[in-house]
């Protein structure tokens, strides 16, 4: 319950019919923190993300970003409040160019009235140019600038993951939620991803919450980790504490 928490989640729960997908989930991440959320398959990690980003509305509990309550807001308003995410199964705008994907991330910080669009007012043109410049800069940071004109779906897998992160960062988030960014990557790519996440945190100063299946990635870079199983928080603490928690070991390896 720290006062200056960037993301403050208090006791959110959701049930789908009789299935209690997430129960009494709480989390508090300080400004600039890098926290992890782990758990076996079906533990409710992605459901948690969907609750945080407004895809689902929690039955009880509250969510605040930088002190602003966003509980129950629709997804686009939560994005405006400063919560941005990537998806477990990549959700790029496949037929749009790489540049357009990032430009859509910039969309919510601009003003786009129908009249100024149709009349091409000076403001509209300046804004479009500013968007293009910012998007190109972002693509350069991620080493994607030379592929700006390609369709999103034609990028190799690793680039698609990076583009998703770039797109999420274009929204100028306060909190970045990464949903299994290392899924389907080989050890080298995972190492590069770890470095990328740390660089993003350093250069963009965002607070990061990471869902990960791969223990290696989370244990190395996260400051604190929350472990979910069957929708319930079974452990929370530093990587060392969590690693040695008998309940976590049980959840991952099963009992004898």
């Amino acid at each position: 319950m720290s006062a200056g928490a960037m993301l403050e989640v208090r006791g959110i729960s959701i049930a789908f019919g009789g299935l209690k997908a997430v129960q009494d989930f709480s989390l508090s991440i300080p400004r600039g923190g890098l926290y992890g959320l782990i758990g076996p398959n079906g533990a409710g990690k992605t459901t948690c993300f969907n609750l945080l980003t407004g895809v689902y509305t929690p039955n009880v509990g509250s969510i605040a970003v930088d002190g602003v309550d966003v509980t129950g807001l629709p997804p686009h308003q939560i994005a405006v409040a400063g919560l941005s995410r990537t998806f477990q199964n990549i959700r790029l705008f496949g037929q749009l160019s790489v540049l357009d994907n990032v430009l859509l991330g910039l969309h919510l910080r601009g003003r786009h009235s129908l009249a100024s669009t149709l009349l091409r007012t000076g403001f509209h043109v300046s804004q479009e140019r500013a968007m293009a410049a910012l998007a190109m800069r972002l693509l350069e940071t991620f080493g994607l600038a030379n592929r700006a004109e390609e369709q999103g779906k034609n990028l190799p897998y690793g680039d698609q993951r990076r583009l998703e992160i770039a797109r999420a960062l274009a929204t100028e988030p306060k909190v970045l939620l990464l949903d299994e960014p290392a899924a389907g990557m080989n050890p080298q790519e995972k190492k590069a991803l770890r470095e990328l996440i740390q660089r993003v945190r350093r250069e963009f100063g965002v607070t990061i919450l990471l869902i990960e299946h791969d223990m290696g990635v989370v244990m190395n870079i996260c400051e604190r980790i929350t472990v979910l199983n069957f929708g319930q928080t079974i452990a929370s603490g530093t990587p060392d504490e969590v690693q040695n928690d008998p309940k976590v070991i049980e959840a991952y390896l099963g009992t004898e």
Binding site: R91, L92, F93, L96, L108, R167
Partner: peptide
């Protein structure tokens, strides 16, 4: 292209 992703981008 993708309504869920569009909303997540603030559309």
């Amino acid at each position: 292209e993708d309504e869920v992703a569009a909303q997540a981008m603030g559309v």
